[in-house]
Structures are given as structure tokens and as C-alpha cells.
């Protein structure tokens, strides 16, 4: 009886987890620009992997593998935001974005201000100032 209940829960988790992968796929295809697609690539997968690992833990029912399952999820939690940031940052800097999908862009104002300041100073210091701001 208990086995059946656990099986049903695990099945639901598995199907939901797969649906999260599907959501990522649909998002990859349907969002308008690179920066929005990053959201589709990172967020649903985190929950999706959690559900799949939970289903695995429920089916195997052994405490020994729980740390590995937790580790797999924590590794994803730690890496997904960093790769999202790196790709988003590279995308923004190399102008892989559609301005018309952005409602406001406060970074552009800051970048424009910094560029203007640099032009005004136009001396030896400009290079180091710019490096400070960007890196």
C-alpha cells in the first residue's frame, strides 16, 4: 500500500520534472532575445532536477544516496546563476539584445554617462577609470 503511494508520488514528480525541461525548451524557442532566453534556460531546470532527484530518492529508499542527490542539486544551484550571469554579461556587452523588448535600461544610462565622462577627461586617467567601472 505504502509502496503504491510512494510510486504514485514519484511518478508525479518525474512527469512534473520532465514538464520543466519542456518549459525550458519552449522558452528557448519562444522568448524574443538572448537575455530573456537565459531565464528559460536556468530557472525551470533547477526545479526540474530537484523533482527528478526527489523521485529517484523516493524510489531507491536508501539513506546512503541522499547526500549525493543533495550534492547534485547544490552543484546545480551554485553553477546555474554563475553561467547565467556570465552569458548574460557577455550578451549585453556584445549587444546581443533587442532594445525594443526592454522597457527600461538603467545600465545603458550608466554606461553612457561613463563614456561621456571619459571623453571629457580625455587624458591618461581615462583608461584606468574605465577599467574600474567595468571590471
Amino acid at each position: 500500500m505504502l509502496d503504491t503511494i510512494i510510486d504514485v508520488i514519484a511518478s508525479i514528480f518525474m512527469i512534473l520534472g520532465c514538464l520543466m525541461s519542456l518549459a525550458a525548451g519552449i522558452g528557448m524557442l519562444r522568448f524574443p532575445d538572448l537575455l530573456s532566453r537565459m531565464h528559460a534556460a536556468t530557472k525551470p531546470q533547477v526545479l526540474g532536477l530537484f523533482l527528478l532527484l526527489a523521485a529517484l530518492g523516493l524510489e531507491l529508499r536508501s539513506w546512503v544516496i541522499v547526500p549525493v542527490l543533495a550534492l547534485a542539486w547544490i552543484v546545480q544551484l551554485l553553477t546555474a546563476p554563475v553561467s547565467a550571469h556570465m552569458v548574460g554579461r557577455a550578451g549585453y556587452r556584445t549587444r546581443h539584445l533587442k532594445r525594443e523588448t526592454l522597457l527600461t535600461d538603467e545600465l545603458a544610462t550608466v554606461v553612457a554617462a561613463a563614456a561621456a565622462r571619459e571623453r571629457k577627461e580625455n587624458g591618461e586617467d581615462t583608461e584606468s577609470n574605465r577599467a574600474d567601472f567595468i571590471d
Binding site: I15, C18, L19, L22, A24, G25, M28, L29
Partner: peptide, 10 residues
């Protein structure tokens, strides 16, 4: 099936 569709879209 779901994963195949997702992989196809990707």
C-alpha cells in the same frame, strides 16, 4: 515523449 519534444525544440 516529453523529454524528446523538449530536446527537439532545443
Amino acid at each position: 515523449t516529453i523529454l524528446s519534444i523538449a530536446a527537439f525544440l532545443t
